[in-house]
Nucleic acid binder design. Structure first.
Lengths: 142, 142
DNA sequence: TGACATCCAATGCGCGTGCATGTAAGGTTC
DNA sequence: GAACCTTACATGCACGCGCATTGGATGTCA
């Protein structure tokens, strides 16, 4: 079953690439143009909004967020810096472990996130519910 | 079926991200460390080796390659430049349309590709045959 | 207390990417 | 053949990423 596995695996990878590429490109484009948010930035907001419940003004440690994302420590650090500059998030030192940082959603951050959520959902539904919907190997935005 | 679709779609995306991330990171690492090839570079060689049959010394137009990859025109151009510098590929002008470039696999390129192929296959099999194999959200190389 | 390993986050650096643009070569129309 | 649009590829540029390193805070052990 060597050759057979070969073909299956290549086709499966190809399919994964297609879905990943189409979805993530459109996610990036839509989030960026409609809400001025990158994919990573949105994801951080998403995690924050879950972490303590949006009402509580989500709050989480950098390390915990990092563990939930496919992002290096340095990339997360910079993503948070961008979010902070945009006023969507606040860094707060942890009193019990001054190495660690807490991250908090600001009201503006929560608002931005809530606004972007439907966009996010719509793109996912479009590309993932009926996988054949985005069949062509559509490039990023061209 | 709103909420249900929501959950399904998020889980599916999450799963896709996991598989994509784990597979592509390991692909990148393995190809780079064992064969000094990036993922895009390998893919170009792969396409070339198919295009006219490896024995014929694969040959294809840039545009045709671009159409088969999830890569922008500029990124492909630079990837080919890297391959050319490494002596794995040759650019050749097309006599009938001097805008177009043909791309040819050199013997060294074919050799490198054949050497890397098993590595590529092994990674795909590892991550895609039994999807639960790489369950943890393993980061890139950490 | 002092020496050393470990952990968290920030930063310098290089790389590959996409977008926008530039350049050269068709193709079309008059 | 002149004016114009389109196509193929290369290149300037900015950006986000990962890796390696740094610096400060903790923990541990003698």
């Amino acid at each position: 079953m060597e050759a057979e596995t070969d073909v299956d695996v290549c086709a499966k990878w190809s399919e994964t690439l297609r879905v990943y590429h189409n979805t993530s490109c459109e996610l990036e484009n839509e989030l960026q143009s409609r809400h001025d948010l990158g994919r990573s930035e949105f994801e951080v907001l998403l995690i924050l909004s879950r972490e303590c419940g949006a009402a509580a003004g989500g709050k989480a440690k950098m390390k915990d967020i990092e563990a939930e994302m496919y992002l290096s420590q340095s990339a997360l650090s910079r993503t948070v810096t961008r979010l902070e500059k945009a006023g969507l998030v606040t860094r707060a030192a942890c009193d019990f472990d001054r190495r660690a940082n807490f991250l908090m959603l600001t009201p503006a951050g929560l608002e931005r996130f809530e606004a972007a959520k439907p966009t996010h959902r719509a793109v996912l539904v479009k590309h993932l519910v009926d996988t054949t919907a985005s069949q062509p190997a559509a490039a990023c935005s061209r």
